[in-house]
């Protein structure tokens, strides 16, 4: 098993954290993982992305040009990374902010109204967890249980009180297949 994921969205949408959670859970499950952020001016400018690789074997390149999956949370990220997805791969898109149709028929598309759900749950900050919930459900890469157990380690101290809400968001995301 080797899964290459690009996660992307606006700065502040919790993209990096989502990537860290997948990496951390992968590590906990005894897999090889790498997490590589975009860094520099683009971090400040709005879009943020990171590449996560989870594998049974040592990971050669920590970068990818043909991801198995992308999790995109805003339109610029969708436009940028959709063409890169490997044929047969999966796109997880935040349909609250991305209304565009996917003009590729060789990939699976899962639309998640992440912001809407997050708002219903009472905190727009957890849209990323809704996306992640769907990702975990649809891809056999990491287990939901491990992610849940990783939250405490990965969330910063000031966000520890959001753990319950995060769990709810993960569960809600599972419904989108």
């Amino acid at each position: 098993m080797k899964e290459e994921i690009i996660l992307a969205g606006f700065g502040g949408q919790g993209i990096m954290l989502m990537g860290k959670l997948i990496s951390y859970a992968g590590m906990k499950e005894g897999k090889e993982v790498s997490w590589m952020p975009s860094y520099g001016p683009e971090m400040r400018g709005g879009t943020a992305n990171c590449t996560v690789i989870v594998s049974d074997k040592l990971i050669p390149s920590p970068m990818t040009t043909q991801p198995d999956s992308i999790i995109v949370m805003n339109l610029p990220s969708f436009d940028k990374f959709l063409p890169q997805v490997k044929s047969g791969g999966t796109v997880f898109l935040n349909s609250t902010l991305i209304e565009e149709d996917v003009k590729r028929d060789d990939i699976k598309v899962i639309k998640i109204p992440a912001n809407e759900i997050a708002n219903q749950l009472g905190n727009s900050k957890i849209a990323n967890m809704v996306m992640l919930g769907s990702y975990i459900e649809n891809k056999d890469v990491i287990k939901l249980k491990t992610v849940k157990n990783s939250l405490e380690s990965v969330l910063s101290a000031r966000n520890q009180d959001l753990i319950d809400l995060n769990l709810k968001a993960l569960e809600k995301g599972k419904e989108y297949k």
Partner: peptide, 8 residues
Amino acid sequence: IIGQMMEP
């Protein structure tokens, strides 16, 4: 990349 990347 070595500086920015996270690995176990």
